[in-house]
Design a protein around this nucleic acid. Structure first.
Lengths: 178, 178
DNA sequence: TACCTGAGTTCGGTTAGCAGAGCCAGTATG
DNA sequence: CATACTGGCTCTGCTAACCGAACTCAGGTA
């Protein structure tokens, strides 16, 4: 586990990165989402050192993303495989967002190697934000501190995205004052 | 930069992690989204070693997420600040997905410290998948290799999530064969 | 029994991250 | 003019993480 960066475990970003933030972890999740379950397959497809893979798989199991299951091939000994949990499957949303961001902002010289689709219709998917059942333009996503008290609604307003010289004290991240 | 894990830069996940995958980077993006622009503010709010912060800010500038701008406080010398680019702002979608995942699967003992809201209505947001203008249940997100040739449509089907003992050769991640 | 094979484990070297101290460079002040 | 200030780094020695290659382990099979 990476630990809670910044030391505040109320922050969901830090909590997610505790499980997901180490080198190689999200690539393993990518392969797990694509169907890989066996140690050697992960190792070959990623080119990851075996010791690192062992550690990351343990982290993903401990973090509730993967679970170990025993399987028995037609010949040979019983083995463990690593299968996505429900929580692991939900990481598809994270990878969809990452992949979309890269496609839009970090294009490759080669044609795209993967995309995300609707399992039922085959349609290509993109990430979105929603409020209830309503689609919201992702440009309107803003972080907001959840105030226990002494709420200052203006702290999370877009004005905070301006240069900080106008109000140096108010420029601390809204999150920090939660 | 982290480099392209797995060595295949057609993979958008790997390309995104090239910029975003190093320790501390996404926490810096979190704070940038919340309005932080100055070196010392990032450093204080995150508790990150200064040399690491310097390196990460440089990566984010090189990766097109932040841009350096000169500003002049009322007293003192001209300074650089780090302002989100359009591409950087788009990372809100990634953080929304990460935060939502953690809230649902890695809850904290303390009340939540932050959430994401619609900048115009203040409504709380959740991540979603969409096909065009249609909301799609995130449970239906599946990765699919974009085949240049020798397409094997069954490779990206949910059957691949089954134990691999039935078809050892077909268990390689669909992405790898793109 | 020996061999096989997948899943690790070990080991020595390299790289990344860390804490603390120090440096740099404009600006303001006496 | 010299000095102090302050934000943004840079340096240094140490620890932790990652790496590549070699090795070990443990059930099953011939």
């Amino acid at each position: 586990m990476l630990g809670i960066l910044g030391g505040d475990d109320r922050c969901p970003i830090a909590r997610s990165l505790d499980v997901l933030g180490e080198k190689w972890t999200l690539m393993i999740v990518r392969d797990a989402l694509a169907g890989t379950t066996r140690f050697s397959r992960f190792q070959e497809s990623l080119g990851i050192p075996r010791e690192v893979l062992t550690a990351r798989l343990a982290t993903l199991v401990e973090g509730g993303v993967l679970e170990r299951r025993s399987y028995k091939p037609e010949s040979g000994r019983a083995r463990d495989e690593y299968v996505l949990t429900g929580a692991g499957q939900e990481l598809a949303m994270v990878l969809l967002a990452l992949g979309d961001w890269a496609d839009r902002n970090r294009p490759s010289s080669a044609p795209a190697g993967m995309r995300f689709v609707d399992a039922e219709t085959g349609e290509r998917l993109a990430p979105a934000a929603r409020a209830g059942d309503r689609l919201v333009d992702p440009e309107r996503i803003r972080p907001e501190a959840v105030p226990p008290e002494h709420a200052r609604p203006e702290d999370a307003q877009p004005e905070n995205a301006q240069p900080e010289n106008a109000r140096p004290e108010d420029s601390r991240p809204a999150l920090e004052r939660a």
